[in-house]
Write a protein that binds this DNA or RNA. Structure first.
Lengths: 66, 66
DNA sequence: ATAAATTGTAACATATATTTTACATTATTC
DNA sequence: GAATAATGTAAAATATATGTTACAATTTAT
């Protein structure tokens, strides 16, 4: 479950805490998603995208092999 | 929770049942997602995209007002 | 119009995302 | 290097996605 949440978050200068609050979710949830240990809901993905000004593809799409 | 699963599925000539089997999920799950009554997991979204040859943005991204 | 296929939906069971609380570790600032 | 902020992580509780079974409604083909 790889993604680009962490890099996207840093690009808009948000801490996990701040992003979490902005979205209305727990800091732990953000942390686990960034670590790839959660399988987040679509709604949460969309909220994250919104907060970091990117689209789903930009944050959660992983190009398949080479 | 609007999306384009139904139209995407029809474009590749799959029934809900067939899509469900291809993904390894229940027909009901597909039905409810198409109806916008579920908030699917990212993994499931990715599986669906895979099955219908589209990206996350193409299937699950909703342009905001405008 | 009838039969068959496809889809909608409901109740209950199960798996798992998310919360809460709490503490340990790592990075940052002074 | 000490203090502070930021992050990683764990256990237990809760919310909710998904499975199972079953049946109704709708669509498609004959």
């Amino acid at each position: 479950m790889d993604n680009k949440v962490k890099i996207s978050r840093i690009q808009v200068n948000l801490t996990q805490q701040q992003l979490a609050e902005k979205i209305g979710v727990t800091r732990q949830t953000i942390s686990l998603i960034e670590k790839g240990k959660y399988n987040p809901s679509l709604k949460l993905c969309l909220d994250i995208c919104n907060a970091v000004n990117k689209t789903l593809d930009e944050v959660f799409w992983i190009e398949k092999g080479g």
